[in-house]
Design a protein around this nucleic acid. Structure first.
Lengths: 128, 128
DNA sequence: TTTGTATTTAGAATAATTCTAATTTGACAG
DNA sequence: CTGTCAAATTAGAATTATTCTAAATACAAA
């Protein structure tokens, strides 16, 4: 991935404030530094950054997708009241099947979602 | 939740074919049995079913939300090639911090997401 | 230079979902 | 029963996040 001026701007803006902003949030923040940037560019840049693994999407509730630049593996805790998203670090040396996530004191879990992305056996065979 | 005719229809339709359909898929399937049902009703019914815990939303890719009536706790494996969603059962007697998910033979994991929904400590305090 | 390819841009288009307002339903009280 | 009321349903309009389009720009390589 070519780190263009706009991609760097979007990425830096994301790193500046780790509050899981939406594309629109990032657009407004980035525009303060480069007023000519367009919404489409923010989406394009985010797409490129997600594709190369520097950024992750967080899909929550019925609102816009949020973006996360926290690179160490972590789970997201979504507060159902205030909507805040908390990064929960985990010991990433542990194996996937034995994951350890520390839930902060006072947090109550209602439910959780796990989505594993990859390729299924049928598709792996077809691709050899 | 009042299990009205339409809610029962949507729920039964979801149970009939466990392929994680979108709201639109369900609309077309449900319409075969009750041609007067409307798209808005399908959304309303799904919302009610999700709220009462009978149904779960699965958010994947950039497409429409998918719905899942598999009630036993499980993770989703999303094939990045064909888009299929597989339910991965887990031993739900295991504690959250020690979850065991069996990945089927031949499946390759690229990445996975965990989202935990609940209430954060601040909001829990404000609600006492 | 010239050429080509990728990126950016503004605005239009799309698609999923939500909203609106009118109608229907069904439970319950009288 | 019959009337009342709240909740649910409905069709279609509205919204909103996101993607698409086509032109302009940038920038690397020949």
């Amino acid at each position: 991935m070519k780190l263009t001026r706009q991609r760097k701007l979007v990425y830096d803006t994301l790193l500046e404030k780790l509050d899981h902003p939406t594309a629109e949030d990032l657009f407004f923040r980035a525009r303060k530094k480069q007023p000519e940037i367009s919404m489409a560019t923010v989406y394009n840049c985010l797409e490129a950054l997600v594709k190369c693994g520097l950024v992750k999407q967080v899909k929550v509730g019925k609102n816009a997708v949020r973006y996360c630049a926290n690179l160490c593996e972590h789970a997201h805790f979504v507060c159902e009241v205030c909507g805040a998203i908390f990064d929960l670090d985990r010991d990433n040396r542990e194996k996937f099947k034995n994951m350890q996530i520390k839930i902060p004191r006072g947090f109550k879990i209602h439910n959780f979602e796990i989505a594993i992305h990859g390729t299924c056996s049928d598709c792996n065979i077809l691709r050899i």
